[in-house]
Amino acid sequence: MTIKSINGCIGCGECVQACPCDVIRMDPVSGKAVITYPADCQICHLCRMYSPVDAIEMSPEKSIPVIVSWG
C-alpha cells in the first residue's frame, strides 16, 4: 500500500513538497498531510526521509498491480 499511514503529523508540509509524484496533499481543514493519490507513489521514501517528526510509515507493496519486463 505504498505510503501506509501518516502518524503524528505536525502539518509542516515537508512531505508534500518532497514527494516527486504529488502523492501527498495538505488537508485544508485539519492542516495535516493526507495521502491523496496513493496510486502514484513510487515508494522512494523521500517523504519519510524529509519528515521532521518521522511521521510517514511505508510499505513495499504498490497499491496497483505492477507491470514488469520479466520477473
Binding site: S5, N7, V34, I35, P38, S63, P65, S69
Partner: peptide, 21 residues
C-alpha cells in the same frame, strides 16, 4: 493521532485484470 489510508485508491480493482504484455 493516526491517519490511515486503506482504500483511497479507486483504480486498484479496475486494474486487477492487467497482465504483462
Amino acid at each position: 493521532m493516526t491517519q490511515q489510508q486503506e482504500t483511497l485508491n479507486p483504480t486498484r480493482r479496475e486494474f486487477i485484470a492487467l497482465g504483462g504484455g
